[in-house]
Simulated assay, not measured.
Amino acid sequence: MIKFPNIFKFSRTPAIHYYCCKYSSNKDTTPSIVTEEPKELVRKQFDLKDVKASDMQWRTPWHQKEGEYYTALRVFYKEENRTSMLQKLQAPIDLSPSAIKNWWAKQKEKKEIMMQSYIPDRHRILGNELAAAHFIVHRGGSIKFYNEDKWIKANEDNEYVLPRFYEEEKVLQAIDCSDMNLYYEGLVNLRDLRKVEWLSFNGCEHIDDWCLDRISNIFSHSLIYLDLRNCPNITARGIGALYKLQHLKILYLDDFYKSTHYELTCLLLQEVNPDLDVRSDPVTFELS
């Protein structure tokens, strides 16, 4: 006979209590015959209509169950990124001179963008006016302060004379960024300038519509003159963002007749600001 400890006699589990009563060694106790299983042990019959997503949890992919791995490698599980990632991994390495040149150009661009990032310590030591002056002159531009007749620009050895500490009377009036390698990320260094009236981006190939939107927000209260010639990435959308320049009087563009949309945007800009004079370089036509 199989004997169980007395602790099983008081077990609350229906199955264990049933077997303890059936095989108990106590002769005075007549074992009861159980013909059906307890209700808790009856197998539940599922209806296909009642099946929920939680009932199919066992079919969940492993990377969704393991949240840590899914977070670290989620780029491999997104459907839209899977194809491109596999294509990059399977693509042969291009070591041609043109590919190496493009790669090196992209690395230089990333470095330049990082070097143009906002540095809080520079603005804390110099103030916003002098910090912007150092930023522009160091990269080949020139600036002019109020009550001063001379423009400050670096020489061939990139040497220039500017105060190294904050001076209250130094307030920028004009900024010339012509032919500078200036990016959108670098424009944040020009914010919080009080009285900039003259601004030129002539020849800045990286100035685009997004840059014009940021410029119009930074100088909306003071700018009078703006030069956007030789900026190939500027479209009618960027010109439309200049409506926020409330005091703008002169706007220089390449050719506002180059497209109907571009011309209409310039006309609407003049309608919003009747004092605005939109100028363009003379366009010559050659007849063959």
Results as ranks from 00 to 15, higher is better:
Ile2Cys: 11
Pro5Cys: 04
Asn6Trp: 06
Ala15Trp: 02
Ile16Cys: 07
Tyr23Leu: 13
Tyr23Glu: 15
Tyr23Ala: 13
Thr30Ile: 15
Pro31Met: 08
Ile33Arg: 06
Lys44Cys: 13
Gln45Pro: 09
Ala53Glu: 15
Ser54Gly: 09
Ser54Gln: 04
Met56Lys: 13
Trp58His: 11
Arg59Cys: 04
Gln64Phe: 01
Gly67Asp: 11
Tyr69Asn: 11
Tyr70Trp: 08
Ala72Thr: 13
Leu73Phe: 14
Lys78Thr: 12
Lys78Asn: 14
Thr83His: 12
Thr83Gln: 07
Gln90Met: 09
Ala91Gln: 14
Ile93Gln: 14
Ile93Ala: 11
Ser96Met: 02
Ala99Pro: 14
Ala99Glu: 08
Ile100Trp: 04
Trp103Ala: 12
Glu109Lys: 06
Pro120Glu: 02
Asp121His: 08
Gly127Phe: 00
Ser142Ala: 10
Ser142Gly: 06
Trp151Leu: 01
Asn155Arg: 01
Glu159Met: 09
Glu159Lys: 07
Tyr160Val: 10
Leu162Ser: 08
Glu167Val: 15
Gln173Asn: 06
Ala174Glu: 05
Asp176Thr: 07
Ser178Phe: 04
Asn181Gly: 09
Glu185Lys: 03
Leu187Lys: 00
Leu190Trp: 00
Lys195Trp: 04
Trp198Glu: 08
Trp198Val: 15
Cys204Lys: 07
Cys211Met: 02
Ile218Phe: 01
Leu228Gln: 00
Cys231Asp: 09
Ala236Ile: 04
His247Cys: 03
Leu248Val: 01
Cys266Thr: 08
Asn273Pro: 00
Arg279Met: 09
Thr284Gln: 09
Ser288Thr: 15
